[in-house]
Design a binder for these strands. Sequence first.
RNA 1: GGAUAGGUGGCUGAGUGGUCUAAAGCAACAGUCUUGAAAACUGUCGUCUGAGCAAUCGGACCGUGAGUUCGAAUCUCACCCUAUCCGCCA
Length: 425
Amino acid sequence: MLDIKFIRENKDLIKFGAEKKHINFDVEELVKIDDERLSIRKEGDELRAKQNSASTKMGNPNLSQEERQSILEEMKTVKEDLKKIEEKEIPVMNSWHKLMLAVPNIPDMSVPEGTSDADNMEIRKWGEIKSFDFTPLDHIEIMEKQDMVDFERGTKTSGFRGYFLKNDGAMLEMALWQYAMQKWQAKGFTPMLVPSLVKRETLLGTGYLPQGEDDLYKDDQDYLAGTGEVATMYYHSGEVLENLNEPKKFIAWSPCFRKEAGSHGKDVKGLIRVHEFYKCEQVVLCSASHEESVRLHEELTRNAEEMMEELNIPYHTVVNCGGDLGLGQVKKYDIEAWVPSQNKYRETHSSSYFHDFQTRRLNIRYKDVDGKLRYAHSLNNTALATPRMLTIIVENYQQADGTIKVPEVLVPFMGGKRVIGVPIR
RNA sequence: GGAUAGGUGGCUGAGUGGUCUAAAGCAACAGUCUUGAAAACUGUCGUCUGAGCAAUCGGACCGUGAGUUCGAAUCUCACCCUAUCCGCCA
């Protein structure tokens, strides 16, 4: 959500932003509705002012009966007029709220033009793509042969995209978690295990609703969040934060649930795309400064790249084009890891900043150095998502005999184990 | 799920249906005093919003939403949340 005053004063920017994001949004319609809102509001305010001054007079015990009667008569008509105005206000406010939730945030100047992820631009590349002197297997085959995963019983239990992780498949994933949580805690992030079961407001506040309804599991009241960002951002909702000179940084772990509506044909096998997975998210609240947001955005991105380098996974980082940005995002980087079996990079991290788009909806403010209350800025980036990262490690670390080398940094978390599995060829 | 008690400003906490533009305290900020600080004293001090160059003036906000009334923080109803007890239960 953006400030209505800002929207009114910067209609061209809003139009430009919507076009760059390839989102249909009619600013003129919003301004028209807002004009109505203001004029109705003014009418109502004037009547209420009358009511208030009459009420003050009525409070005077020395008031004569006649005066009392005449005020009562007058206020009866005022009351009726006010009721009419309030009825007129309801539909106007409904459309106003609906439109306000649909206003896209304005992308940064440095965001490239484009309509889809095909137009994203590579800005960094790291690591040497391994050339195997044998034919590399995909993670499905290796992991099934090493009894690290069971898809058959997974789908028997959960249906499409179901899975069980087993043996060192389970242990390697837990090792990744230990490693990641410790790494981010050492960087000053507050570790949290956050709820996935959340109320509707949390998803409205973070900007996943109203437009993302189809991709969410839900019952009458509760939703299962697709990312820990939702609960973590809601954690401070409605609060005035005491001190935001130092940004608040969270490293939030949670199960994540996604229906993956519209991607039924993609990644139909394996652990790349599943309905239920786990993710550790970097979530940051900082002061309302564009420079601070940009600085932290680079920092969050760099944190994730550093992890990829420690794991020795070849990756590249892309800056997402306008058409690949969400409603609230100002700018986004995706980090994509090399997947040998697919001979291409696949997304493992998504790093974005929002300015005050989310915090306005969530009402997260802080007292600035000048004593003013301001909406904080928010950012987030993946730290680690499994089992996707598991598949990337398994594929990149596979050896000629079908065993899997354990990445050096994970060895301590695997109880000293350096190789997973038994020779299968 | 049942019973009871509650939800008031950054925090604690008063508030008989009519100057509530919400008492008081704490915290914060400024000043006096002091070499400096603390203490003490004095003063300032809610948020959002409309009009205005401005001083200023108007409106909204006491968990949320309806209702009663000329007028609601205060009365009624529904819902949400919190605490305690009981029930059920990993």
